[in-house]
C-alpha cells in the first residue's frame, strides 16, 4: 500500500509549468504533461478505486479541485499568449499611415454656379420660383416691352449684339426680358427670379466681358411697395453677405422701373476699409411694362431688381480679372472645390 499521493505538490508543479510556458506550443506541452491521460494527476484520479475507502472521498475531491485549477490556469494563460501573439503579428504590420489615401476624385463647381445656387436657395425660401428665357431674344422683349423705345443708346450696334440679317433679334442684353415673358404667360401674382447669361458689346478687359451673368428678380402682387423691395433686398443681402449688412438705396434711372434705385450693400474689404458696394439696380415696375404684358397697373404693383453675378463672385473671392472666370484654367477652377 502506497502513501497517499502529494496532491498539492502535483498541483503546484502543474501551475508552475503553465506559468512558465512562453508560447502556445510550450503551453500545449505543459497541458499534455500535467493534465494528459498519462499525467500523474490523471493517473491518480484514475486509480482512486484502489485507495482505501476512507481516502477515496477526500483524495477525489482534492484531485478534481487541482485539475480544475490547472485547467483554469491553462485557459487564462492561453488567452494571454494568444493576445500577445496577435499583438506581435499586428505590430509587424506597421505601415506609414501618412502616405496619401486612395485618390477618390473631387472636382469643382464653377464659382458662378456656387454663388448662383446660393442666390437661388435664398429666393426659393422666400417663395420665388426660378425662370429662364431665350438668350437669342427679340428687341421687343429686351427693349420695347421694357419701356425702352428705339433710339435709346442701348438699342444700337455699338452696345448690343444683333443677329445678322435681323434688326429685331439680338443677344439679350439683360435678364429683364424674362420678366416680360413670364408676365405674358402667367397671371399675377408672380414671384420669380431669373438667373442667366447676358451679352453686351464691351471689349474684353479685366472688368468687362461681352458675356456675363445676371440675376433678375421680380414680384407682382396687390399692394407691393418700395418698402417691400427694400425689405426683400435687405433680407437677401444679409443671407448672402452676412447678418451685419446694411443696404442703401439711391434714386437712379432705368427705363422699366419708376421709381428706380441703385442698391449698395455695406462692405468691409480685406484691409478693413468699410464702404458701400454698388451691387444692384431695382425699382417699382413701370406701368408701361404692365400695359405691355396686359396687367392692370391700377390693380397690380410690383418691384424688380437685377444684379451681376460675376461681380459678386469677384468681390467675394478677391478675383482681380473677370477673364479668369471663362478660361477653364484648372489652376483657377480647382481652388473652388
Amino acid at each position: 500500500m502506497s502513501a497517499p499521493p502529494d496532491l498539492s505538490a502535483l498541483r503546484e508543479e502543474a501551475l508552475a509549468a503553465v506559468a512558465a510556458a512562453r508560447d502556445l506550443a510550450a503551453l500545449e506541452e505543459a497541458r499534455v504533461r500535467h493534465l494528459g491521460r498519462r499525467s500523474p494527476l490523471a493517473e491518480l484520479l484514475g486509480s482512486i478505486g484502489t485507495l482505501p475507502p476512507e481516502q477515496r472521498g477526500p483524495v477525489g475531491k482534492e484531485g478534481n479541485a487541482a485539475r480544475r485549477a490547472v485547467e483554469q490556469a491553462l485557459t487564462t494563460r492561453r488567452e494571454a499568449l494568444e493576445a500577445e501573439e496577435m499583438g506581435a503579428r499586428l505590430a509587424a504590420e506597421r505601415v506609414d499611415v501618412t502616405l496619401p489615401g486612395d485618390p477618390w476624385p473631387s472636382g469643382s463647381l464653377h464659382p458662378l454656379t456656387q454663388v448662383r445656387r446660393e442666390v437661388e436657395e435664398i429666393f426659393l425660401g422666400m417663395g420665388y420660383r426660378i425662370a429662364d428665357g431665350p438668350e437669342v431674344e427679340t428687341t421687343y422683349h429686351n427693349f420695347t416691352a421694357l419701356n425702352t423705345p428705339e433710339g435709346h443708346p442701348a438699342w444700337s450696334l455699338a452696345d448690343t449684339f444683333f443677329v445678322e440679317g435681323r434688326d429685331d433679334v439680338i443677344l439679350r442684353a439683360q435678364t429683364s426680358p424674362v420678366q416680360v415673358r413670364v408676365m405674358e404667360s402667367t397671371p399675377p401674382p408672380v414671384y420669380v427670379i431669373a438667373p442667366g447669361t447676358v451679352y453686351r458689346r464691351d471689349d474684353v478687359d479685366a472688368t468687362h466681358s461681352p458675356m456675363f451673368h445676371q440675376v433678375e428678380g421680380f414680384a407682382v402682387d396687390e399692394g407691393l411697395s418700395l418698402a417691400h423691395l427694400k425689405g426683400t433686398l435687405l433680407a437677401f443681402m444679409r443671407e448672402l453677405f452676412g447678418r451685419d449688412r446694411e443696404i442703401r438705396l439711391i434714386p437712379h434711372f432705368f427705363p422699366f422701373t419708376e421709381p428706380s434705385v441703385d442698391v449698395s450693400v455695406s462692405w468691409t474689404d480685406r484691409h478693413g476699409n468699410t464702404g458701400w458696394l454698388e451691387v444692384a439696380g431695382a425699382g417699382m415696375v413701370d406701368p408701361n411694362v404692365f400695359r405691355a404684358v396686359g396687367y392692370d397697373p391700377e390693380r397690380w404693383t410690383g418691384f424688380a431688381f437685377g444684379f451681376g453675378l460675376d461681380r459678386i463672385v469677384m468681390v467675394r473671392h478677391g478675383i482681380p480679372d473677370i477673364r479668369l472666370l471663362f478660361e477653364g484654367d484648372l489652376r483657377f477652377l480647382e481652388q473652388f472645390s
Partner: peptide
C-alpha cells in the same frame, strides 16, 4: 411719385418683407 420719393428721402422708407404664401421649389 419718383420725384416726391427721392427728394422726400428714399432712406426714410422702411424695409418690409412681402407676405409670400410658401417657399418655392425647383422644377
Amino acid at each position: 411719385i419718383e420725384e416726391i420719393g427721392r427728394v422726400w428721402g428714399i432712406e426714410r422708407i422702411p424695409a418690409v418683407l412681402p407676405k409670400v404664401p410658401a417657399a418655392a421649389r425647383r422644377t
